[in-house]
Design a protein around this nucleic acid. Structure first.
Length: 428
DNA sequence: TCTGGGGTCCTAGGACCC
DNA sequence: TCTGGGGTCCTAGGACCC
């Protein structure tokens, strides 16, 4: 059996933890740049505030019902996420926990006797809540996909399930599948959901009755086959071992306001490159490929229905030697940015993507270029140490600029209660 | 006026090899 | 009239996830 442990309205729960007066009140959290709604408490959901809608569209409801509104505070969420995951690792053993996202983890329960599973699932829930103050839901089933089905129903029927649901008999599984619309299956997105509906396949149960060949043909080849097998109760998506290095690292941001000048674009690109390089060094890797992209502002009155982004321009380059040095990467990134920039255009977003990532102990050297990896890595280590100990960005590259008037908006940001001394929660 | 920021995996098709 | 049969590697793009 596999379990999925999922924090309830995670970002909202984090904000509430230090503002207990908000318990039972509607709360929403906004995306970067205060653009969209990305998390809602149950109370906010029942007011009809939809996931992912732009803030300015939700504003009337938010003001009418005095919904508590926060800019996203990733320092806070990251730290609380770590506490939740540590709790799970302590309870079940590190080798059985796969952190799937900031607020979710799969747990391998194949070594647990069936008779003890329900008790363990409840223990996980109560312990996480007691140790961290974050409420979670637990879904347990023979496969990962089915455990997500269980988790969804546990959350949906909180009173009946107390947020814990174990699907351990064929009958329970069948009933759960009948109550799950195809669009709510993990792995079925908007496109496939439409396709399934067109084929008159409405529930997960109906989908589970299709053949593997059908899934291969209509749901993206081997991906669809895996999904169907999982729905039918045959484990086909394995646990991921921890400490796998990312194969791609990106840092991309919307600007706080449209940017016209090459100078500002370059500052942003340099800043994002430095951040991406930091992430790279944190996993002890180096990158050989770098892509820069900038997104133009969408010309006015050219969109109908769903929001579309403006045209995106991108350029890539491959380095002679893989590196994690911010300085070397910034140099390349700025060249690319200059290539892409067109005078007279207005931009709203930029990003940097590092690729061809390998561990830094297996750098392929170039016969004709001196390798100064050691020098650079010592410098970067010093920079990282200072930035970690003091505060973010106290040491940065001049190319990043000092004014940064392209920086994103965060009008409702809460204190970083758990990661900054001077932002601790005060009790009077 | 105003719409996020990360990631993953897979497939198709082109270039190239013998 | 008639033009093989394998391979590999790479990239772009599409689908999905939270």
């Amino acid at each position: 059996m596999f379990a999925i442990v999922d924090c309830n309205s995670f970002y909202c729960s984090c904000e509430r933890l230090f503002r207990p007066a908000l318990e039972g009140q509607p709360v929403v959290v906004l995306s970067n740049n205060d653009g969209c709604i990305i998390a809602r408490s149950d109370e906010a959901k029942s007011l009809g505030i939809d996931m992912g809608i732009p803030y300015f569209m939700a504003k009337p409801l938010i003001e009418k019902y005095k919904v508590a509104t926060f800019s996203s505070n990733y320092n806070l969420y990251g730290n609380l996420s770590w506490r939740v995951m540590e709790t799970l690792r302590t309870l079940i053993g590190q080798q059985y926990v796969e952190v799937y996202s900031v607020d979710e983890a799969f747990i391998d329960l194949r070594h647990i006797p069936p008779s003890q599973i329900m008790a363990l699932a409840k223990k996980i829930k109560t312990t996480v809540e007691m140790w961290t103050g974050i409420k979670v839901s637990v879904g347990v089933a023979p496969t990962k996909v089915l455990s997500k089905v269980a988790n969804r129903l546990a959350k949906k029927h909180k009173e009946a399930t107390s947020c814990v649901l174990v699907l351990d008999t064929p009958n329970k599984i069948m009933q759960a599948l009948e109550r799950t619309p195809v669009a709510d299956i993990w792995g079925i997105g908007r496109q496939y959901a439409q396709k399934l509906l067109a084929n008159n396949i409405l529930t997960a149960h109906q989908l589970s009755k299709q053949t593997l060949m059908w899934a291969h043909k209509h749901l993206g080849g081997v991906v669809g086959v895996r999904l169907l097998r999982e729905l039918q109760g045959n484990p086909s998506i394995e646990m991921q071992t921890p400490l796998i290095c990312k194969q791609m690292i990106a840092t991309t941001r919307m600007f706080g306001k449209p940017v016209n000048s090459l100078q500002h674009i370059k500052e942003a690109v340099a800043t994002y490159t430095a951040r991406a390089a930091e992430k790279l060094r944190r996993q002890y890797s180096v990158a050989k490929a770098i892509t820069v992209f900038i997104v133009q502002q969408q010309p006015a009155n050219s969109y109908s229905g769903r929001y579309k982004h403006g045209p995106s321009l991108s350029a890539s380059t491959t380095l002679t030697i893989a590196t994690s040095s911010s300085g070397l990467l910034i140099k390349q990134a700025l060249l690319l940015a200059e290539q892409l920039y067109q005078e007279g255009s207005s931009y709203k977003k930029a990003g940097v993507i590092l690729g061809h990532i390998v561990p830094n102990d297996s750098i392929q050297c170039n016969l004709f270029v001196a390798n100064n990896h050691t020098v650079h890595s010592k410098l970067m280590q010093a920079v990282d140490n200072i930035n970690f100990a003091m505060r973010n960005d106290i040491v940065k590259f001049a190319a990043s600029g000092t004014e940064r008037n392209w920086k994103m908006q965060q009008n409702f940001i809460s204190p970083r209660y758990t990661t900054r001394w001077h932002e601790l929660c005060l009790v009077h």
